[in-house]
């Protein structure tokens, strides 16, 4: 299904794990350093250059190139979301609703309840992702470096994204993890028996 930004909490609540989603509209990149600074801003009452509330936050450090006055997105796949676990748990206290796009999953199935969804985009598919990014609308905090800055992208049918954690706390990653641990345990037991 296609979702457009800003994503209302009604739409967020409709999304269930396993569903395939394509995003059109505006997405905002943020990774390690941007999360830390955003939280500093929020806590000290400073205005963020762009609001994280009702936004689509993309865990991505894009490869961009300046051509004349314009920024061109060359490759922009997702980065490992787990690095943002701690910051995201905190950030969720300050937003009504949020859509997070990343890869590898997060440990936020409790905190995200009633607030947001986590969408998984294919890791490493940076050229494919860049195809769906139509232009760079804004860039903030470039002093953090190209990968760590906040990039605001206009996207069209950005996907396929898989709903991997929904707003009811269901997580595909938790399910897979349970099965993997079980498989590992059985494997090691039968190895001992050999």
């Amino acid at each position: 299904m296609e979702i457009s930004t800003p994503v209302s909490s009604d739409v967020v609540r409709k999304l269930r794990v396993g569903e395939i989603v394509y995003i059109s509209g505006e997405i905002i990149t943020a990774r390690d350093k941007a999360h830390v600074r955003a939280l500093e801003f929020i806590k000290s009452g400073k205005k963020l250059p762009i609001s994280f509330n009702n936004a689509v936050i993309y865990h991505c450090g894009p490869l961009v190139q300046k051509v004349g006055k314009d920024w061109i997105v060359i490759s922009a796949g997702p980065t490992t979301s787990a690095r943002m676990n701690r910051a995201t748990k905190e950030l969720l206290n300050y937003v009504d609703s949020i859509v997070i796009v990343g890869k590898g999953g997060m440990d936020i199935s409790e905190e995200i309840k009633g607030k947001g969804v986590y969408l998984a985009y294919t890791g490493g598919a940076g050229a494919l992702a860049a195809n769906a990014i139509k232009r760079v609308k804004e860039v903030h905090w470039l002093d953090l470096g190209m990968p760590e800055a906040i990039w605001v992208f206009e996207v069209e049918m950005f996907g396929p994204c898989i709903v991997a954690i929904d707003s009811y706390g269901n997580s595909l990653y938790d399910e897979v993890k349970r099965r993997v641990e079980e498989n590992f345990r059985k494997m090691m037991e039968s190895d001992k028996a050999d």
């Binding site: 490869l63 060359i74 490759s75 796949g77 980065t79 598919a125 940076g126 494919l128 860049a130 990968p147």
Partner: peptide, 18 residues
């Protein structure tokens, strides 16, 4: 992933932003 590899090769752009 396979689609991405094709795009990168054809357009001569890095397949991954990292």
């Amino acid at each position: 992933i396979l689609k991405n590899i094709e795009i990168a090769k054809t357009k001569k752009i890095p397949m991954c932003q990292d």
